[in-house]
């Protein structure tokens, strides 16, 4: 293990003139971040299992996976946004709006094919994303301001659309509810959809030019402009993708919980941001990995499931989530400092 570590370090140092003899602890950790997350997940699972043996049952695991699916779908979009140094606080509202419109449509037309409902929700989310992307990329509004403003517009529209009423389980056709409860080859649809999205996202960020340009824009916007990357278009694109995924997630959400309300998923954007920063997506932009956010989302999903099982009051959950975000971003910052310090020590001055 130790030898391999040195080998890696030597490879990274490359020229050899710095001699990879000293690395700070945090620099080492950066390499093993995913392993560390995995270890935390395992530890939590073992801990909870000891307190409550019904935790690691097939049913519960399936349940966790299905719950995590929506979170992880949204994390993909949020990761892209954060990589470009942005943030999107509007997704809870976008999710509610697209879910509500899909629910109202199937309520009015029970015969509608579930796929059409999915597409409808997707389209609504996409439209929301396009608006935000326009405001951020073309008008040049700070992402935090643009999304804070549109969050309220979308939330308000959700209430307007529903007239303040709920769409509840008995008003939805079974075919619609089966989007989330049905399964393909014995695996829950939500999980299937999430896996497909992850596969596509992985291909997008690491094997297409546009995907890499997203990283370039976040890493150094000025030189991206000089190397001829259309930074505004990239910004617009990431918010649009975020919106589209949120629209999709909205339909899945409403189908899964079999209810659409005005305050659906209120504050859910915070969980998504938490999953991203836990997964090592740097809030300063330019870095973030698909494998990281999967683990971040899974860890958060397990926590959400496990806390009630070991009798932690639901009123603690807000606080815990906030502390997780704060701890994760502070931790990321400290790791980054360690790496920078490590690079300095290589200079031998």
């Amino acid at each position: 293990m130790k030898q391999k570590m040195f080998a890696d370090a030597a490879l990274a140092v490359g020229t050899g003139q710095g001699a990879a003899t000293k690395t700070t602890i945090s620099a080492k950790f950066a390499k093993f971040r995913e392993l560390g997350l995995l270890a935390v997940i395992v530890l939590i699972c073992i801990g909870v299992q000891i307190r409550n043996p019904s935790f690691l049952t097939w049913e519960n695991i399936n349940d966790i996976a299905a719950n995590t699916a929506i979170l992880s779908i949204l994390s993909v979009g949020m990761m892209l946004v954060i990589i470009t140094r942005g943030i999107d606080l509007s997704i809870g509202a976008t999710l509610a709006l697209s879910g509500m419109i899909a629910a109202l449509t199937v309520k009015a037309h029970p015969g509608l094919h579930p796929l059409a409902a999915l597409l409808l929700g997707f389209a609504v989310g996409l439209a929301c994303g396009i608006v935000i992307g326009f405001l951020v990329a073309k008008v040049g509004i700070l992402p935090i301001i643009a999304t804070l403003g549109m969050m309220n517009v979308f939330r308000g529209l959700t209430y307007e659309a529903s007239g303040g009423k709920w769409v509840s389980a008995h008003q939805m056709p079974d075919s619609f509810k089966q989007i989330a409860t049905g399964s393909l080859l014995g695996i829950n649809n939500l999980i299937v959809i999430a896996v497909v999205i992850y596969a596509v996202a992985y291909y997008f960020v690491s094997h297409t030019r546009t995907g890499r340009q997203v990283y370039a824009v976040g890493s150094n916007p000025e030189s991206a402009e000089i190397s001829g990357i259309k930074t505004k278009r990239i910004l617009w694109l990431v918010y649009t993708i975020m919106g589209g995924l949120t629209g999709l997630a909205g339909v899945l959400w409403v189908s899964k919980f079999a209810s659409a309300q005005g305050d659906t998923a209120s504050g859910y954007e915070l969980s998504v941001i938490a999953a991203c920063v836990l997964g090592g997506v740097s809030i300063a932009g330019g870095s973030g990995k698909i494998s990281g956010i999967i683990l971040g989302a899974v860890l958060l999903g397990i926590l959400n499931n496990a806390l009630p099982m070991i009798n932690v009051s639901p009123f603690w959950q807000n606080w815990i989530q906030g502390m997780i975000i704060l701890a994760a971003v502070v931790f990321n910052a400290l790791v980054k400092r360690g790496i920078d310090r490590n690079n300095l020590m290589r200079r031998k001055i």
């Binding site: 990283y215 370039a216 890493s219 150094n220 000025e222 030189s223 000089i226 330019g286």
Partner: peptide, 10 residues
């Protein structure tokens, strides 16, 4: 003018 977060190849 580089991208510090990306690899040399990129």
């Amino acid at each position: 003018t580089c991208y510090p977060d990306l690899s040399v190849t990129e």
